[in-house]
Measured scan of single mutants.
Amino acid sequence: MVDYIVEYDYDAVHDDELTIRVGEIIRNVKKLQEEGWLEGELNGRRGMFPDNFVKEIKR
């Protein structure tokens, strides 16, 4: 799994989504079957977030 950095703020709409803020690092990200969404861990919580608000961290 890979990590992503947040490029744009996003406020969660549903309980299974993450609220993300610019500059945060989302860890252990995986792609979901639902197009346009990823799932990852942030601040001890796992949830979904839109893939166009983040950028993969290349290592």
Rank of each mutant, 00 (worst) to 15 (best):
M1Y: 05
M1A: 14
M1C: 07
M1G: 10
M1K: 15
M1W: 09
V2W: 10
V2M: 15
V2G: 10
V2D: 11
V2C: 12
V2Q: 08
V2T: 11
V2R: 11
D3A: 08
D3T: 09
D3K: 07
D3G: 05
D3M: 10
Y4H: 03
Y4A: 08
Y4W: 09
Y4M: 11
Y4R: 05
Y4G: 06
I5C: 06
I5W: 02
I5Y: 08
I5N: 03
I5D: 03
I5H: 02
I5K: 11
V6L: 00
V6K: 03
V6C: 13
V6Y: 04
V6E: 00
V6M: 01
V6P: 00
E7F: 07
E7I: 14
E7C: 06
E7N: 06
E7T: 14
E7G: 06
Y8E: 13
Y8P: 00
Y8L: 12
Y8H: 15
Y8G: 13
Y8W: 10
D9M: 01
D9V: 02
D9N: 07
D9T: 02
D9W: 01
D9C: 03
D9P: 11
D9K: 05
D9H: 08
D9A: 11
D9E: 06
Y10C: 03
Y10A: 02
Y10V: 00
Y10N: 03
D11Y: 08
D11G: 04
A12L: 00
A12F: 01
A12M: 01
A12H: 00
A12V: 00
A12W: 00
A12N: 03
V13L: 09
V13T: 07
V13M: 12
V13Y: 06
V13E: 12
H14S: 14
H14V: 09
H14A: 11
D15T: 14
D15K: 11
D15C: 07
D15F: 06
D15L: 10
D15P: 10
D16G: 12
D16H: 12
D16M: 11
D16T: 14
D16A: 12
D16Q: 11
D16R: 15
E17F: 04
E17I: 03
E17A: 03
E17M: 04
E17V: 02
E17N: 05
E17S: 04
E17R: 03
L18G: 00
L18C: 03
L18M: 08
T19Q: 04
T19G: 01
T19P: 02
T19K: 04
T19A: 02
T19C: 05
T19H: 05
I20W: 02
I20F: 05
I20L: 13
I20V: 08
R21C: 07
R21A: 01
R21Y: 00
R21P: 01
R21V: 02
V22P: 12
V22T: 12
V22C: 06
V22M: 04
V22G: 13
V22N: 03
V22Q: 15
G23L: 00
G23H: 05
G23D: 01
E24K: 00
E24G: 06
E24I: 00
E24F: 06
E24T: 05
E24P: 00
E24A: 06
I25V: 11
I25T: 12
I25Y: 07
I25S: 04
I25L: 11
I25Q: 06
I25R: 11
I26A: 03
R27S: 12
R27C: 13
R27E: 11
N28E: 09
N28Y: 05
N28T: 03
N28D: 14
N28W: 01
N28R: 07
N28K: 07
N28V: 00
N28S: 09
N28L: 02
V29D: 01
V29F: 00
V29H: 03
K30E: 14
K30C: 10
K30S: 10
K30H: 15
K30F: 10
K30Q: 06
K30D: 08
K30P: 00
K31N: 06
K31A: 14
K31W: 06
L32F: 14
L32N: 11
L32K: 14
L32A: 15
L32G: 13
L32C: 14
L32Y: 08
L32T: 07
L32Q: 11
L32R: 13
Q33A: 12
Q33M: 08
Q33H: 11
Q33R: 11
E34N: 14
E34Q: 08
E34C: 15
E34G: 13
E34M: 14
E34D: 10
E34P: 10
E34L: 14
E34H: 15
E34Y: 11
E35P: 14
E35W: 05
E35D: 13
E35A: 12
E35K: 14
E35L: 08
E35R: 13
G36R: 09
G36F: 03
G36Y: 03
W37V: 08
W37Q: 06
W37G: 02
W37F: 12
L38D: 02
L38A: 08
L38N: 03
L38H: 03
L38M: 14
L38V: 04
L38I: 05
L38P: 00
E39A: 10
E39T: 07
E39D: 04
E39Y: 09
E39W: 09
E39N: 05
E39L: 05
G40L: 00
G40S: 04
G40Q: 00
G40A: 00
E41S: 13
E41W: 06
E41C: 06
E41G: 03
E41Q: 06
E41T: 08
L42H: 07
L42A: 06
L42T: 04
L42F: 08
L42S: 07
N43E: 09
N43R: 11
N43L: 06
N43K: 10
N43C: 05
N43M: 05
N43S: 08
N43V: 02
G44S: 03
G44M: 03
R45S: 12
R45H: 15
R45K: 11
R45V: 07
R45G: 02
R46T: 11
R46F: 06
R46V: 09
R46Q: 07
R46M: 12
R46K: 09
M48W: 10
M48T: 14
M48D: 03
M48C: 13
M48A: 14
M48Y: 12
M48S: 14
F49E: 01
F49N: 02
F49H: 02
F49I: 09
F49M: 05
F49W: 01
P50Y: 05
P50T: 02
P50G: 06
P50N: 07
P50C: 04
P50E: 00
P50H: 10
D51P: 11
D51R: 13
D51V: 12
D51I: 15
D51H: 13
N52Q: 10
N52L: 13
N52V: 15
N52I: 10
N52G: 10
F53P: 08
F53S: 14
F53C: 15
F53H: 15
F53I: 11
F53D: 05
F53A: 14
F53W: 13
V54D: 01
V54T: 08
V54Q: 12
V54C: 09
K55S: 12
K55M: 08
K55L: 06
K55P: 04
K55A: 07
K55T: 08
K55W: 02
E56T: 08
E56Q: 08
E56A: 13
E56C: 12
E56P: 15
I57C: 08
I57R: 13
I57N: 15
I57G: 10
K58C: 11
R59Q: 14
R59E: 15
R59G: 14
R59P: 15
R59Y: 10
R59S: 14
R59D: 06
